[in-house]
Design a binder for these strands. Structure first.
Length: 487
RNA sequence: GGUCCCAUCGUCUAGUGGUUAGGACGCUGGCCUCUCACGCCGGAAACCGGGGUUCAACUCCCCGUGGGACUACCA
């Protein structure tokens, strides 16, 4: 591992959709690699066949791609250090297990799960830390043979000695664990498949990972892994444990807190660069008080020094705020493109909408969008078949003078020889003159009649988008409707 | 219970011995001769407690307290 070219990795286990916490870990690793010009490796930890699925793996890859987190080596991108699925690396773990057995660092354990469970229950009952007490630690060869003859398949446990395990964490500084407090842990399960801590050490070493950046929930695993590194004679990588994302109750963010999967945010209409920006900001900062940041800026300003040590609550309000910023400030064409699926989902025949017209509509309502999926309801006022007077609008139209204003509007619309683009100001001026009404009393009835709502984009924009025919029809409908009857 | 980690406004943070403790979200007042939103200008809002160290502690040390993570033949 060269100091100037770090190699980091993200190693998800495909047991579910990509969690924002994991996405943040991936992002930290990715930014670290990009900042220092290193390499970012993706490894799939699929050793548990019952919890793992190919479908989830595919979805995780898809979510990473959506976030534009790309990997230099991994599935679909061979780099000479593969394979990148642990399932395909079993022969490697076998090899190192043999080394450890020969070195006496590991021993077979014949305890059944039921026996272990009983031991654990006993310890918990006596208010002691549940851990393996070393029953099979010093079995004689004949004892082992007896077990094998009984048909028992052993798991392999790591023999823990006394002493301190110390290491320096890039984010947290000096860390120290007492090995004596740990129980001999399983390195290879009785089905021959390696357990997490063992596979990770072998893989990280073989893949020449220089820095392991992961959540603080792995802090205690690091102690165990360091022991394995030592027994194997491997030089351990540098570790950095970042803080966790928390739910509102300050416990580790999980499903019960609401949306946690990257996919859910995507479906809701959070932009990928927003989620990335937010995740990079959470529990950290960009310096200079900056909050809105491009990917390039995120990478160049990235530093583990800026990573906070304490957990950070996931604040959806702020995520939404950030999404609004990107929607308002982004490129209109690009925004339109990304809005298309949501417009379609709202039931519009996207293919038959005039693109230029659509862009004007989007430009008019983008200020009111928090997520992309909001576009559906926001657009309704521009479609005649979706136009309807809301209760609030009816309220407005019932007010004194309101119908006079609408009638004056209809007249002005009839007389208007201009396209609605230029006509707005003239129409408003003429309605004001005819009725003698101004301000809110003038605008609100017109807004209500023309859009059917009491809130919405600025009226000049609405007039510019709606056709003269639509405007006339809507005014006419209001006048001839139940509200328009002469009193 | 054990081991370990953490601790600045409600939330995310800046701050590395001397600051009127700064910014952002949210909340809130005002302005933008129509609304909502946007934008702009304001406001309320924090150094967990106790001991040290020091001329001086939010900042360093210790102890409490509080919160969290881990305690699997899951990863």
């Amino acid at each position: 591992m060269t100091a100037d070219k770090p190699r980091v990795r993200f190693a998800p286990s495909p047991t579910g959709d990509l969690h924002v916490g994991n996405a943040r870990t991936a992002l930290f690793n990715w930014m670290f690699a990009r900042h220092y010009g290193g390499e970012f490796i993706l490894r799939i930890e699929d050793t548990d066949p019952v919890r793992t699925s190919r479908d989830f793996e595919y979805r995780i890859l898809e979510d990473l791609a959506w976030l534009s987190i790309d990997w230099d080596e991994g599935p679909g991108k061979e780099g000479g250090k593969g394979p990148y699925h642990q399932q395909e690396r079993l022969y490697l773990y076998d090899h190192y297990l043999k080394n450890l057995i020969e070195a006496g660092a590991v021993y077979p354990c014949y305890c059944t799960e039921a026996e272990l469970e009983a031991e654990r229950a006993e310890l918990v009952f006596r208010k002691m830390m549940p851990r393996y007490m070393g029953k099979c630690r010093n079995l004689s060869d004949s004892n082992r043979k007896t077990m094998t003859d009984q048909g028992r398949k052993p798991s392999y446990r790591f023999r823990i000695g006394a002493g301190q395990i110390e290491f320096s964490d890039l984010i947290r500084g000096a860390m120290k664990f007492d090995a004596g407090a740990l129980g001999d842990f399983i390195i290879v399960r009785s089905n021959g498949i390696p357990a997490y801590n063992f596979a990770v050490v072998v893989d990280d070493h073989l893949m020449t990972i220089s820095h392991v950046i992961r959540g603080e929930d792995h802090l205690s695993n690091t102690a165990l892994q360091l022991l394995i590194y030592e027994a194997l004679g491997f030089k351990p990588p540098i570790f950095a444990h970042h803080s966790l994302i928390l739910g509102k109750d300050r416990s580790k963010l999980s499903k019960r807190h609401g949306s946690v999967a990257v996919r859910e945010f995507r479906e809701r209409g959070i932009l990928p660069e927003v989620l990335l920006n937010y995740l990079a900001l959470l529990g950290s900062s960009f310096g200079g008080g900056r909050e809105v940041c491009t990917q390039e800026e995120m990478i160049s300003s990235f530093s583990l020094d800026r990573a906070g040590k304490s957990g950070a609550i996931f604040d959806e309000d702020k995520l939404n705020w950030l999404n609004g910023i990107y929607i308002r400030q982004g490129d209109l064409e690009r925004l339109t493109e990304r809005l298309l699926p949501y417009i379609r989902a709202a039931g519009h025949d996207v293919d038959n909408l005039d693109r230029a017209w659509l862009e004007r509509v989007i430009d008019a309502v983008r200020g009111d969008l928090v997520t992309l999926s909001d576009i559906g309801t926001q657009m309704d006022i521009f479609f005649d078949d979706r136009y309807a007077l809301s209760g609030e609008a009816q309220q407005v139209l019932r007010e004194e003078q309101a119908m006079n204003v609408v009638r004056a509007l209809r007249e002005s619309l009839e007389q208007s020889p201009f396209s609605t683009d230029e006509a707005y100001h003239q129409i408003m001026a003429s309605v004001a003159k005819k009725t003698g009404v101004k301000g809110k009393k003038l605008f609100m009835p017109i807004r209500a009649a023309v859009t059917g709502k009491v809130r919405g984009p600025e009226l000049d924009k609405v007039f510019a988008i709606l056709s003269l025919e639509s405007l006339r029809h809507r005014a006419e409908d209001v006048i001839s409707g139940p509200l328009g009857g002469r009193r």
